[in-house]
Design a protein around this nucleic acid. Structure first.
Lengths: 191, 191, 191, 191
DNA sequence: GATGAATGAGTTTTCATTCAT
DNA sequence: GATGAATGAAAACTCATTCAT
């Protein structure tokens, strides 16, 4: 059914959909608009995607994996904790801030009833290495011995918040702020 | 006089709407269902609210102000920084965790295209005292001299994240975790 | 049920209704608007009128009878044909032009499905004297011996048309034009 | 290509709408009924017309232009006045009487608040040749030197009135009556 | 595969009328 | 009598999805 053809068309659909969802939310998303924005006919969208729900789920996965791939770049579990931690933290922050709307989208719609359990789980699994990294940090007594979820929340929460501020134009995050943010993050969890 | 506009009916509509939004999201919200859930006729909803959008905006404001009122309880700008900080942090966390879905709702829909600029601004203004508290902490050299927005992100981000984990049932936040979370928060920003 | 009370209120309703019908037509007429325009409560309209249909029919009758009464003023079947003809023609024209919107209303909605057969017949009967006058004119060989309906159409048609032009502001009818119009009318039917 | 917009479907909608408006007036017109009468789905009507109002305006224009085309047939400004006058008068009358309901519709709804200014103007412009013809008649001293609008009212008014009588079944207009009517018309305006 | 007209179930919203006060 | 909140049936319009071309 799907993806017999034209990858450009596929990407055009993804981009159009993201654009429209950011502007009007999931419920404001109309398949006709997606097609128009992507420069194709309504029916064509149904060649690439089962239905509206499928489109949304595929889009989520597409964005999420691009996102994860970007911030995991160069990650190597065998490197020392601090190297990985610093690199991962900065990459996660930088990738998120580079495309704040995409990141806000991933954040905001993670709980949407449009997303299937399966997609949610797939997205969740992509965080595994981060959990493992923190576990390692705790084992090496570099990080406070608190529940990993709590540490994750403590690390990702501020970044998500900053990204939202940044996306809203409420607060601009530059190099200096980023370093301050890292300092806050590390002061927070270091043992 | 005829029957007066009924505040119980108003609240019934709010509660019905919240119920339904939590279950199915905004896009799944049907005015007919709201009325049914509230035990009134469809048309009656339109006596209390202009239209669906107005209902959502008013609901947001209603929840937000109840929420703010709850965590601001006992706050007194003239008390020492640390007293206010600790109290506010705990109250914010506890109030948020006590009704995690409601809190997640407030977080999630703050960026929703459904909310009018006006409502968003009103909600934003409710955070003023928190900004002022942090400014005071910085002035007294108790808190790192970093941009207030960064500190806010650092403090609220983890709580929001925890609330989501809690709401999802992914991680249960008890008294001990709360104390650990506070410790992380304070270690993070203290100068 | 009706008319126990306040004739001022009754007239306020009539005037409000006429106003609104002229602006938006019958189908655009809302009972709530009528009440608001008349400065009373919605329910009150139903004290004076059975329902929307009754209101429209009563309004029509009210306007029509005021209208007929005005142009029949001074009519006396026993006077010579030409006296009656001239007087009636001028009065019909002047009354119609004095309140062109009312006249246009009476004309335009005479065929509306809102009007009951009964009201239509009542209105129709008010034209009887005009028919009789023309019959008399024919009998006295002053007027062409053509079907009375044809003569009526020939006499009233132009006035109705002029009133519409006048109401639209497309053509202003003054004393001179009125005399020209009478000349046309008489040249037309005189034998 | 997919199916092309279908002119038969368009005409079916026009005819269905006219049918229903004649039966129940504008206010009784339901889009669902139009669709059913035209043998298509409700949504399809909205492919051809923006909304109910647009449908009504387009219908008016469609009928009006068919109407004008019919009575202007053979009109040639270069022919002698009397030829054009007689032909135009008869054609206008015959066309109007041949479809009296349609004509009454065009008359009655010309002033309806449903019609847009634009459509009204377009319809108005179609009368231009008639104005010019009368101006010519005046210039040649064949017709009384009265304002053209007055002459127009004098000529069209009776026909409109007759058409209404005819449509109502109140008075049947045959060949003989038509000749009498023409005689009245000409006696009226000739100089 | 691509198109976009057609479908019609589903939703929002309106508004005549009622009725508790 | 007067009021206006409440009702709920009815209508306009939308939009995901299909399918003839």
């Amino acid at each position: 059914m799907a993806r017999e053809k034209d990858i450009d068309k596929l990407h055009a659909i993804y981009k159009a959909t993201l654009q429209l969802v950011l502007k009007q939310g999931f419920s404001g998303l109309r398949m006709g608009d997606v097609a128009k924005e992507a420069g194709i006919a309504t029916g064509t969208v149904y060649i690439y995607f089962q239905d509206k729900n499928d489109l949304i789920n595929q889009l989520y996965l597409w964005l999420k994996s691009r996102n994860v791939e970007a911030y995991m770049l160069g990650y190597d579990a065998s490197k020392p904790f601090m190297n990985n931690f610093r690199q991962l933290w900065y990459q996660y922050a930088q990738v998120s801030l580079a495309a704040p709307q995409e990141s806000a989208f991933l954040e905001q719609y993670y709980r949407s009833p449009f997303l299937s359990e399966e997609v949610r789980n797939t997205a969740e699994n992509m965080l595994k290495p981060i959990y493992e990294l923190l576990a390692k940090g705790k084992a090496e007594h570099l990080v406070k011995d608190f529940p990993t979820e709590l540490l994750i929340a403590q690390l990702m929460g501020p970044i998500h918040e900053l990204v939202k501020f940044h996306a809203e134009g409420k607060f601009s995050v530059d190099e200096i702020v980023l370093e301050q943010a890292f300092r806050l993050a590390w002061d927070s969890i270091k043992s």
